[in-house]
Simulated scan of single mutants.
Amino acid sequence: MKSKILLSCTLLFTILISPALFAQNDEYYRPDSLRRETPGEPKEYTPKDTNRVAEKKPVVEFKQLPFIERLRAGGGFGLSLGTFTNINLSPMVGYELTEKLVGGVGITYMFFKQRYFDAYSYYGGKGFLMYNVIKPINLIAEVEPLNVVGNYQKRQWIVSPMLGAAYSVPTGGRIAKAVHFTLLYNFNYYNQVDNSAGPAAAITNLSPYGSPVVFRITLL
């Protein structure tokens, strides 16, 4: 009688725990992609999963960049008020010809007004090339033709070929990509002294710059 009761209890216990055993076996043989995670169990990453986590966007070659991403825009601005008023506007547009070379053009406008004297303005344009030697140093070549006021209020054109270098600080912008602290030398500066009114007027300089060395801060 006791053996029958023990056999009945064993059979009942086996029936009760068999679903759990089958479930464990089924989970064990289930593919990794379908296996259920148990709380607290660390997730194992296969090499394929690891690659997917570390996957980055493909690097786009320079030649494949769209036009807008190779375009730069900016320029310079100067303002001096007081006895002598000087306003300088110089918008510029550049285009990345290669990864290191940028070519561009600009417009220059300068307004001058000295107390008790007439106001006058200079205007013209510029073309430039900027080549990155090493970060953050750039070589810059520029030609700037300007229409200026000479003696007797006579207007004339002067051309200033310049060469120099810039220390560039990236801005993180998409169009105006850096601030350039530029030092240029004007090779035509001493030919821009106006001698038309005789020796007394020899100090009259047609160039708007007071020295052959030109310092600029531009955004491009």
Score class of each variant (00 low, 15 high):
Pro58Gln: 08
Pro58Asp: 13
Gly74Val: 00
Gln192Tyr: 00
Thr171Val: 03
Leu219Met: 06
Lys2Trp: 07
Leu6Ala: 15
Lys2Ser: 13
Leu79Val: 14
Pro208Ile: 04
Phe215Lys: 08
Asn138His: 11
Ser121Cys: 04
Pro212Ala: 06
Ser121Phe: 07
Asn191Cys: 02
Leu219Ala: 09
Val60Ile: 11
Glu55Val: 10
Pro42Gln: 04
Pro208Val: 02
Pro31Phe: 02
Leu81Cys: 09
Glu61Tyr: 05
Asp26Lys: 15
Val148Pro: 05
Tyr123Ala: 10
Met1Arg: 09
Ile15His: 09
Ala141Arg: 02
Tyr116Val: 11
Phe22Val: 06
Thr108Cys: 04
Val133Lys: 02
Gln114Val: 11
Gly125Tyr: 01
Asn186Lys: 03
Glu55Lys: 15
Asp49Val: 05
Gln156Ser: 15
Ala141Ser: 07
Arg115Val: 14
Ile140Tyr: 03
Tyr45Gly: 06
Val213Thr: 05
Ser90Tyr: 07
Ala20Pro: 01
Tyr29Val: 11
Pro170Gln: 04
Glu44Tyr: 14
Phe62Thr: 04
Leu101Met: 03
Gly76Ile: 02
Gly198Tyr: 00
Tyr189Glu: 02
Lys63Ile: 10
Lys154Gln: 12
Phe62Glu: 04
Tyr116Cys: 08
Ile203Lys: 05
Ile107Pro: 03
Leu81Ala: 13
Gly198Thr: 02
Gln64Ala: 15
Leu97Arg: 00
Leu183Lys: 04
Asn51Phe: 08
Glu144Met: 14
Phe77Cys: 10
Tyr45Leu: 15
Gly104Ile: 00
Ser8Gly: 13
Ala20Phe: 10
Ser211Cys: 10
Ala197Ile: 01
Phe215Gly: 14
Gly74Ser: 03
Lys113Ser: 14
Ser211Thr: 13
Met1Trp: 06
Phe117Lys: 15
Gln192His: 00
Glu41Met: 12
Ser160Ala: 11
Asp26Thr: 14
Phe84Thr: 14
Asn186Tyr: 02
Gly82Arg: 04
Tyr120Val: 06
Tyr122Leu: 08
Leu219Val: 09
Thr38Arg: 11
Leu12Val: 12
Ala54Ser: 10
Asn86Cys: 06
Gln24Glu: 11
Pro136Asp: 02
Gly104Thr: 01
Asp118Trp: 04
Gly104Ala: 01
Tyr95Pro: 07
Asn138Pro: 02
Ser33Glu: 13
Glu41Ala: 14
Leu219Lys: 01
Leu163Asp: 00
Phe84Met: 12
Gly103Arg: 03
Ser18Lys: 09
Glu96Gln: 12
Trp157Pro: 06
Leu184Val: 09
Asn151Ala: 09
Tyr131Phe: 08
Ala141Gln: 00
Tyr190Leu: 01
Ser18His: 12
Leu81Ser: 13
Ala202Lys: 06
Val105Trp: 01
Tyr189Ile: 05
Ala23Met: 08
Asn195Ile: 03
Pro31Thr: 07
Pro66Gln: 05
Gly76Phe: 00
Tyr109Phe: 13
Pro39Trp: 05
Lys63Met: 11
Ala176Gln: 03
Phe62Tyr: 09
Arg52Met: 12
Glu96Asn: 12
Val214Arg: 02
Ile5Ser: 12
Gly127Leu: 11
